[in-house]
Every structure is written in structure tokens, then in C-alpha cells.
Design a protein around this nucleic acid. Structure first.
Length: 115
DNA sequence: TGATTGACTATGA
DNA sequence: TTCATAGCCAATC
């Protein structure tokens, strides 16, 4: 195989989790990676999101880095598109950063459970 | 085939 | 607190 089938499954899992992010909430790449049992491979989550652009159902704008910084804003075509979408959901974004990050943070491990 | 890159995170100075 | 480095794994050049 040119690629590991399990890798593809990992990407699918990432998409599934991102889709579960409730409106007005955000999560981090590391949180998703950890939830999928791939803690430390947070970059793979980011890479998965790279392919998520093909899926309009994936609210990638709700995924930010551990600091709440909109690191992937550049992949939305416009640097303000991501921020605007978040604000549209009631998330305050200032200087490309999510305000009250701890409050709007959505941890799949906590919300969905470790099981 | 080998080296570099990247939507990250953690640790150390 | 801010900056630099290491680890991570897959995709791309």
C-alpha cells in the first residue's frame, strides 16, 4: 500500500470529532489528537484538516492551537474569514486569538468521554 | 531515496 | 515572559 489504511481512518476520526464541536465552541489540535489516542501527533490533526477543506461539513474554523490562536486562518482563503465565522457563532476573536478560550474550549475527552 | 515542510505541543534557557 | 529547540508523523519536493 502506498499509505497505511489506519492513517486514513485517523483522518476520518478527526473529521468526525470536528463535526461534533458544538456551535460557539472551539477545541485544539492536541485535544483531538489525544482523544484519538494519538497524543503527540497533533501535527497529524492539522494535516488532516488540510484535507478537510474538501468537506464543507467540517467546521475547521472551530479548531485552533492550544493558545486559542487562529493559526490556520490562512487556509480559509481570507485571514478574516475564520475570525468572522467564529464571531458569527458568538466567539470573541481579537488579534486572531479566541477570547475567553478556557470558557469556549470544547474538550472531546471531557464532553464525549474517554471511552 | 533522502531531505524538507507543516493548520502543533512541550520543555528549557 | 519570550525565544529557541526537540519530538512527533505524514505528505511533498
Amino acid at each position: 500500500m502506498d499509505y497505511a489504511p489506519e492513517t486514513e481512518n485517523f483522518f476520518v476520526k478527526v473529521y468526525a470529532v470536528v463535526r461534533l464541536i458544538p456551535k460557539g465552541r472551539v477545541t485544539s489540535y492536541g485535544a483531538i489528537a489525544k482523544y484519538l489516542g494519538a497524543a503527540g501527533s497533533s501535527r497529524m490533526v492539522g494535516w488532516a484538516m488540510n484535507g478537510a477543506g474538501k468537506y464543507p461539513d467540517i467546521p475547521a474554523h472551530r479548531v485552533v492551537n492550544r493558545s486559542g490562536l487562529l493559526t490556520g486562518k490562512m487556509h480559509f482563503g481570507s485571514t478574516t474569514a475564520m475570525q468572522q465565522m467564529l464571531e458569527e457563532e458568538g466567539i470573541q476573536v481579537v488579534a486572531d486569538k479566541v477570547q475567553n478560550f478556557k470558557t469556549v474550549f470544547w474538550d472531546p475527552l471531557t464532553e464525549l468521554g474517554p471511552s
